[in-house]
Amino acid sequence: MNSTLATLAVLDGISYAALVFLVSVGLSLIFGVLRVVNVAHGSFYAFGAYLAATFSLAVAPLSPWLTYPALVAASIVIGVVCGGLIERFLLRPLYGRDDVLQLLITFAAFMIMDNLQRLIWGVQPIFANEPLKLLPNISVFGVNYTSYQVLLLPCVALLTLIGLRYFLRRTLAGAVIMAVTEDREAATAIGIDAKRVYFVTFIIGASFAALGGALALPTTSLVPGMGADMIVLSFAVAATAGLGQIEGTAVTALMIGLARAFIIYTQPEFEVLVPYLLMVLVLLVRPFGLFGATQLRKI
């Protein structure tokens, strides 16, 4: 591999890792607090992308720059509406029940949302790249690359990591979430509403997944099945890092993103295999993930 291809692989890996991290960190946050493996998480990603396309195409004739707030607005709407409804009416009655039942319910929610996606937006590919075209290309070691992918996406991912870490460790609301995570019964005994904490946490996690989908919109075509692909990949990232490990999710997303990018340029037939091969190798050595531990509750 020459230096040009290596540079392209690194840039592709960083860009892809940023999107995967946004989805994976939401999945990891939900598991860390609620102890629920949310299979419907991939649908939040897909719905965020499709709703962002709807909003972007609607506001682009007014001003192309309005497509940026449209991406954020779409992710918030999906997080609040879809995430809120699923937590309140599907998951809340199941807390304390068998984990398999929770898994089946979220899988059913995923299947329902996948069909709703096809019903609302159809099966034809949708593409809206206005946000990508607004930002200029930049040269990195002689390679031209879109600044949207090499600057904006990694910056959003980094700000998400820093902001989430600060929120959980330096704010009162974060302290309440951590208290419920560590010991729900003790937190409830001192007056903390655990159900409200679960509700808010689920919305935040769903919004991150939807944001990942919205930010992916300018770089790819939206097609049915994109949610299924992302939930499998994001679960691989979260499991490799250790479910509930936020900082570890960032490192693992970058590792898998770079490995995937390099394999595309060298052995593209193994692209799909790489993330899951890394996950298997890690879990064989460290069953709790690279950054996981045996604690029952940790985020």
Results as ranks from 00 to 15, higher is better:
Leu103Phe: 13
Ala236His: 04
Ile177Ser: 05
Asp98Gln: 13
Gly13Ser: 01
Leu217Lys: 12
Pro93Ile: 08
Pro69Trp: 10
Val251Leu: 11
Leu101Asn: 12
Leu222Gly: 02
Ala259Asn: 06
Thr7Gly: 04
Leu135Asp: 00
Leu217Trp: 07
Val285Glu: 07
Glu247Ile: 09
Leu281Asp: 09
Leu27Met: 10
Ala259His: 02
Ala194Met: 13
Ala70Gly: 00
Val72Glu: 06
Ala236Glu: 03
Gly212Arg: 04
Arg165Trp: 15
Thr266Arg: 07
Tyr95Gln: 13
Pro218Phe: 04
Thr249Lys: 02
Val232Leu: 14
Arg260Ile: 05
Gln124Phe: 04
Leu71Thr: 06
Gly257Glu: 01
Val150Gly: 00
Thr7Gln: 09
Leu8Tyr: 12
Ser63His: 14
Val280Lys: 02
Arg297Cys: 02
Leu284Met: 13
Ile162Met: 11
Arg88Val: 06
Ser234Thr: 09
Ala9Phe: 04
Cys155Phe: 15
Phe55Ser: 11
Gln245Pro: 00
Leu273Asn: 01
Ile256Cys: 05
Leu132Tyr: 06
Leu233Phe: 08
Gly257Asp: 01
Ala250Lys: 00
Ile30Glu: 13
Val123His: 03
Leu151Ser: 01
Ala17Ile: 01
Ile120Asp: 14
Ala157Pro: 09
Leu134Lys: 03
Ala74Ile: 04
Ala253Ser: 05
Trp121Ala: 11
Gly248Leu: 04
Ile264Asp: 12
Leu172Glu: 14
Leu66Gly: 06
Pro224Lys: 11
Ile112Arg: 03
Ala60Asp: 12
Leu284His: 10
Phe199Cys: 08
Val274Lys: 10
Gly205Ala: 08
Ala239Leu: 13
Ile105Phe: 05
Arg118Trp: 05
Leu71Trp: 10
Ser75Phe: 00
Leu71Lys: 05
Ala194Ile: 09
Ala40Ile: 10
Leu116Gly: 14
Asn129Gly: 08
Leu101His: 11
